[in-house]
Simulated scan of single mutants.
Amino acid sequence: MTFDQIGIPYAAGIINFVVLTAALSSCNSGIFSTGRMLFNLAQQREASPKFNRLSKRGVPATAIIVSALALLVGVVLNYLVPEKYSSG
């Protein structure tokens, strides 16, 4: 690899770690912001009242779990459904 040639053998691993950490952070903030949005919509009677519940610590757990499951469905679909149009 290029980093090995210039004398930095662990640079590729470090860059991969940084990219994965950034991706996980983005997923985490997306899940929690979507959960709070569902909670707010439930308070305004725009979503199911089930999302209006808070845990003992004041977290909209049901909304966050549903958000995480929706993200998981998206990941599975992205894996299972082949690309319709390829760039190559």
Rank of each mutant, 00 (worst) to 15 (best):
P60K: 02
N40R: 12
Q5H: 08
R45I: 00
P82C: 02
I64M: 15
R45V: 01
I64L: 11
V66E: 01
S87K: 13
I14N: 07
E46N: 06
V19M: 09
A70L: 15
A12E: 15
S25G: 15
E83F: 07
E46V: 08
N52S: 15
S87R: 12
S33L: 01
L69T: 12
E46Q: 14
S55F: 06
S25R: 09
L41I: 00
N16I: 02
G13W: 07
S86A: 04
S29T: 13
A47E: 09
G74K: 12
L71V: 14
G35I: 01
A68R: 12
N28I: 00
A70F: 14
A47T: 06
T62E: 05
L38N: 03
P9W: 02
M37E: 12
A23K: 09
G30V: 00
P60G: 00
A68C: 14
V59L: 10
K56A: 10
T2M: 06
E46S: 08
T2K: 11
V75I: 15
S87C: 01
R57W: 08
P82R: 04
S33A: 01
F32P: 00
A63E: 04
C27D: 07
S48H: 12
G88V: 11
F3C: 02
L41C: 03
S87L: 13
Q43K: 15
L71I: 14
L69E: 04
Q44T: 06
L38P: 10
L38Q: 05
V66C: 11
L41D: 08
R57H: 08
A22S: 10
I6H: 04
N52W: 00
F32Y: 11
F17Y: 12
L24I: 07
V75H: 03
Q44D: 13
F17R: 08
N16L: 10
Q5D: 14
S29V: 06
S48C: 09
A47R: 08
V76N: 07
T2Q: 06
A70Y: 03
S48I: 00
V19I: 15
I65V: 15
A11M: 15
Y79C: 06
L80M: 14
L80Y: 13
A61E: 14
K84F: 09
K56V: 01
F3V: 01
M1C: 01
G13C: 01
P49D: 02
S87A: 06
P9G: 03
N78H: 10
T34G: 00
N78D: 13
L71C: 14
A63R: 02
K50Q: 04
S26N: 14
N78T: 14
T21V: 04
I6P: 09
V19R: 10
L24F: 13
P9H: 03
L72C: 15
N28V: 00
V73W: 12
P9T: 05
L20P: 00
T2W: 05
F3T: 04
T34F: 00
I65G: 03
V66D: 03
L54G: 03
R57G: 12
I64T: 08
V76G: 12
S33M: 05
T2H: 05
G13I: 04
V76L: 15
M37D: 08
P9N: 02
V66P: 05
R45H: 09
V75N: 06
D4V: 03
Y85I: 11
A68P: 13
F3P: 00
S55Q: 07
I31Y: 02
I65P: 07
R36G: 00
P82T: 07
V59P: 04
K84Y: 10
T34S: 08
A22Y: 11
